[in-house]
């Protein structure tokens, strides 16, 4: 092969050239264009701005203004789709196909329970809690190909998605996190470095209490008995045989859930994690225990 290879070729050309130094390097020709104002016939006169008016003075009319007509955007009656949009919670979508490709390329370890923190850790899901984003909306794209047995916790899920996860013997929970805990989930290392104690998770606001307490949506505040009934119901509705979780080798992993007041798996509120000395500080004070036990 040898010199037909592009890298080898350029390196071997370099061998016969003078030593690269400050005096003989340069940027690619044409990479920097200095803006110059032409004179006379070289683009002079009006410099492309045209004669008089808006072109020269940059006094563009405001967007939608029709020089006195009743503007288009005012001609029809109001349709307030976006009223209060800045107060609404946003759940950026993650499709089952994306989730499956994260699992296939080992970005997510399915032998452990999957939550928001592990999906953000994969680096391929953009999540901005400061923009009123409240977690993952797992969507049903790729529900047919989805074939992973997982214990996943998301913030919003449709019926098809729940069916797709449960058909493969998995478990899905929908859980609410308040913005402060979402920041911790986004960057746990940054939080541990601050040396603060892990806070409690807040309870959901009134308008989603119903969602997170109902068994149909697999809410984290729902009755487990009812959830198992709903699992059976859903399997009958979609026509698949519900795999027995009890007989599974991953039974313990599939049963792992967070406490409604817990943010991270296995770490209780009130604990302080010291990354440097690899130790955990657990409160023993009665007052703190009472506070963190909710």
């Amino acid at each position: 092969m040898g010199s037909r290879q592009i890298t080898e070729k350029s390196l071997s050309i370099l061998r016969s050239l003078p030593r690269i130094s400050v005096g003989n390097i340069r940027d690619n020709p044409g990479s920097k264009v200095t803006q110059k104002r032409g004179r006379g016939q070289h683009g002079g006169d009006k410099h492309g701005a045209g004669n008089k008016g808006s072109g020269q003075r940059q006094n563009y009319m405001r967007l939608g203004y029709e020089t006195g007509n009743n503007p288009f955007y005012l001609r029809m009656p109001q349709e307030p789709y976006y009223r209060g949009h800045h107060h609404r919670r946003e759940y950026p979508p993650l499709s089952l196909l994306q989730l499956q490709s994260l699992i296939d390329t080992d970005r997510i370890d399915v032998s452990l329970p999957v939550d928001l923190a592990s999906i953000i850790k994969s680096g391929l899901y953009n999540f901005y809690p400061e923009q009123k984003q409240f977690g993952i909306n797992l969507t049903d794209e790729g529900a047919d190909i989805f074939a992973a047995k997982i214990n996943i916790e998301v913030q919003w899920a449709s019926e098809q998605v729940i069916a797709a996860v449960e058909r493969n013997g998995g478990v899905i929970t929908t859980a609410y996190y308040d913005p402060h805990s979402l920041f911790l989930l986004k960057n746990p290392k940054h939080f541990f470095k601050t040396g603060a104690a892990i806070p409690r998770r807040m309870i959901p606001p009134p308008d989603v209490i119903e969602y997170y307490t109902s068994a149909e949506t697999r809410g984290y505040l729902a009755d487990p008995e009812k959830i198992s009934q709903e699992r059976l119901k859903l399997s009958q509705k979609y026509g698949y045989e519900l795999p027995q979780v009890e007989n599974d080798s991953f039974y313990e992993m599939l049963c792992e859930r967070k406490d409604p007041r817990q943010i991270f798996y296995g770490l209780e509120p009130g604990w302080v994690v010291n990354l440097k000395d690899k130790c955990i500080l657990k409160p023993t004070d009665k007052e703190l225990l009472r506070f963190y036990s909710s």
Binding site: L112, I280, K282, T284, E287
Partner: peptide
């Protein structure tokens, strides 16, 4: 406030799984 300081606790596995990847697996 009073705290118990526990060195190398069994819960450390839960902390480790939260830490970011060193390099892409």
């Amino acid at each position: 406030y009073e705290y118990d300081i526990i060195k190398n606790p069994p819960e450390w596995a839960y902390v480790e799984r939260l830490l970011p990847f060193d390099t892409i697996p």
